[in-house]
């Protein structure tokens, strides 16, 4: 199977005043197309930092990240924005939806930045929201929705540009266990249809459903 994601000796060091705080020490990781992998590890082990670097939201201090065989370390900020927009879908623990926009407009947002024509993006947004059981909530704004509904809108937004890779940072962390299970079922379903999913989680039940668990401790992958 093709590799959709590869990291080579990725390190990340944050500078706090005059002190260097190393977070990641040489991460070598590869994820195959269609894989459902979990990143687990104690708080502060660098899970979210790694996910941000993989998602091109942050740059590594050294090392390379290859998304779909493209070396992202050589790309400009605008080229990275295109990679994020087209190849990666993000789901966050905190939903990160725009409060004043309707569910449909929130889902349209990534398509706006990829210049998808209006009619096509409205159609796609409505299809995705219907797929996630939100056909009667399209015009509702996030503050009028429950946590589970918001996360489903966020999932629809993540899928808007049909990305090959979904990165989810504790997607069920803010949800009760029943709603969390619903979201997990959606992710499993997406994976069964061929989507690659990388999920940061503390939840062993979620990790148990994944093909592979990547354990991170003190900025290194435990073998």
């Amino acid at each position: 199977m093709d590799r959709i994601l590869e990291t080579e000796s990725v390190t990340k060091t944050y500078r706090l005043g005059k002190i260097d705080v190393p977070v990641l020490h040489g991460i070598d990781l590869s994820v195959k197309q269609g894989e459902f992998a979990a990143i687990m590890g104690p708080s502060g082990s660098g899970k979210s930092t790694l996910l941000n670097i993989i998602g091109c939201l942050d740059r590594p201090t050294s090392g390379r990240v290859l998304i779909d065989c493209i070396d992202t370390s050589t790309l400009s900020d605008n080229e990275l924005a295109v990679i994020r927009g087209r190849k990666i879908g993000f789901v966050f623990q905190t939903f990160n939806l725009v409060a004043r926009l309707s569910a449909q407009r929130n889902v349209e947002m990534p398509m706006i930045y990829q210049d998808v024509p209006r009619n096509a993006r409205v159609k796609r947004a409505r299809e995705l929201l219907t797929l996630f059981g939100l056909s009667d909530r399209m015009d509702h704004k996030p503050p009028e929705m429950s946590g589970g509904q918001r996360q489903r809108v966020a999932l629809a937004r993540a899928l808007a540009n049909d990305p090959a890779l979904i990165l989810a940072d504790e997607p069920t962390g803010n949800l009760d266990s029943k709603t969390g299970k619903e979201i997990l079922r959606i992710l499993e379903d997406l994976n069964e249809r061929g989507r690659t999913i990388l999920i940061v989680t503390h939840d062993h039940e979620i990790a148990g459903k994944c093909d592979r668990i990547i354990r991170l401790k003190d900025g290194v992958i435990e073998t």
């Binding site: 939201l57 924005a81 295109v82 994020r84 087209r86 966050f92 905190t94 930045y113 540009n161």
Partner: peptide, 15 residues
Amino acid sequence: FLVKTARSVGTSQWD
């Protein structure tokens, strides 16, 4: 948080 959200939907530097 806002910057991260905007980046995650593929916003260019100018936007």
